[in-house]
Nucleic acid binder design. Structure first.
Lengths: 258, 258
DNA sequence: CCCAATTTGTTCGTATGTATA
DNA sequence: TTATACATACGAACAAATTGG
């Protein structure tokens, strides 16, 4: 016999229209999203079944599915026929390549080997402060990584994270992680990166980049500034990547108009 | 009284399952896509109503909507409540910015002023030939544009088009176009660009770029190679953009995992 | 190996609301 | 105002995938 206890009361906030005349499925979607943001369901965890959710919200199965459809389209939920609906998990290489855009000029994609070059706790500079919505001088964690492809140093990443948001992050935990750093954010800190914005320029390699990438200073390199966002477009990571594009390229796939 | 003539027979190929066990709405989607590709409905033109299409295909309204939903998500169709369903039109500035990614470092977006620098009919080189799926030496049209932002030359584009595909394209028609070049492709040649792939590198400015952008040769610039695709991922345009990123940046918005 | 229970996926049909011409 | 078109919401039935006995 299946339990038919109320779901809505305990796990979700009551559904209320977003605005006058707003569709019902949007209210359901918002309630689901709030529950996920609040960590009510851990990343990778399963939600109640569609029939349970629908009856819990007091809506039809079709309306519930419409709401879940949109969350699936936004990559926040994942559906698996016969198993259930899950909070999206960023465990695989698939996720890596969603945000890692460097590949060899001939099109070869490889998983980069990451070398941690430096791990520091510092006060935040003007530029990352603005990107992360912090006041200059607030404590941040600054990580320098070197990414190797085909045994060659191709990318230098300088990552800036709010020390408050990533309380307890240590060099050890960073070194000992399996999988990607975004997977670490998600599993260890409950922070899911949903989107990112990147701005790229061509610059002459500075001394640090030249040394780490084995280049002559002044050689043209690509500099990519990335702000990674979580739910509600809240910034959680600022990253400056310096890419040696002598043998590699920065790849971008565009789709049609929105 | 509304006409209830059969739609499917005249306008669409009969729906047949893609494969054993493939869902019905996919077959409907494919048939719709074929009709659009074939130019059965011009860009910007309206499709028959959902009820007409559904009865024409012999499926329920819900199944028809599911098929159209996917085409809308892929930006191939546009729905307007109370008006109808239309083949997506690339008329607006909105479309321009879908493929134009350069903006000022402070975030200012501006519509570029385009100067046609050269228009030539030549035999295609190795690189654009491969991108366009042509044999080296086939006739192509080569267009050189200079893009001005805030009165400054910021981008040089070299565009390569198959002379066969764009038969009748002249310098005059190119100069006299309103709107974007992709809009011209669509309205004058029936070619709709749906997606594009870009590969970027940092390079030292060559003499041509230096002259056109008013730079010293050797200055770092971004070089973006773009292949623009139409339905069925058929390549229709190859473009090499050289960007002076001294005051401007190349912007890219990423969404979550697929 | 098969069966049964569970869960999502697909398809159908109907009714009503909202926007447009 | 009226007719038409898409948007939302409801409910039902069966298919397909998964899991566990």
């Amino acid at each position: 016999m299946a339990l038919t206890t109320s779901i809505a009361a305990a796990d979700f906030e009551p559904i209320a229209p977003d605005a006058a005349g707003a569709p019902l499925y949007r209210a359901v979607k918002r309630s689901l999203l709030r529950a996920i943001e609040a960590g009510r369901y851990p990343a990778g965890g399963s939600l109640p079944s569609e029939t349970e959710l629908a009856s819990g919200f007091g809506v039809s199965i079709g309306t519930l599915r419409h709401a879940v459809d949109e969350l699936v389209a936004e990559h926040i939920l994942v559906r698996r026929q016969g198993r259930g609906t899950f909070v999206a998990l960023h465990n695989a290489d698939r996720f890596l390549f969603q945000f890692f855009h460097v590949e060899r000029s001939d099109g070869l994609r490889e998983i980069p080997r990451v070398e941690l070059v430096a791990f520091e706790r510092v006060r935040v500079d003007e530029e990352p402060a603005q990107a992360l919505g912090l006041r200059p001088g607030e404590p941040v964690i600054q990580v320098d990584n070197r990414l190797m492809l085909q045994g060659r140093a191709v990318v230098h990443d300088r990552i800036t994270l709010s020390a408050l948001l990533f309380k307890g992050l240590s060099e050890k935990r960073l070194r000992e992680r399996r999988s990607t750093i975004y997977h670490l954010y998600q599993t260890e800190f409950g922070i899911t990166v949903t989107r990112a914005q990147e701005r790229a320029r061509a610059v002459a390699a500075d001394r640090l980049a030249a040394r780490l990438l084995g280049l002559a200073p002044g050689v043209p390199v690509m500099q990519v500034r990335r702000t990674a966002l979580t739910f509600g477009d809240k910034p959680v990571e600022y990253r400056v990547s310096t890419v040696n594009t002598a043998q590699h390229e920065y790849v971008n796939l565009l789709s049609g108009p929105p």
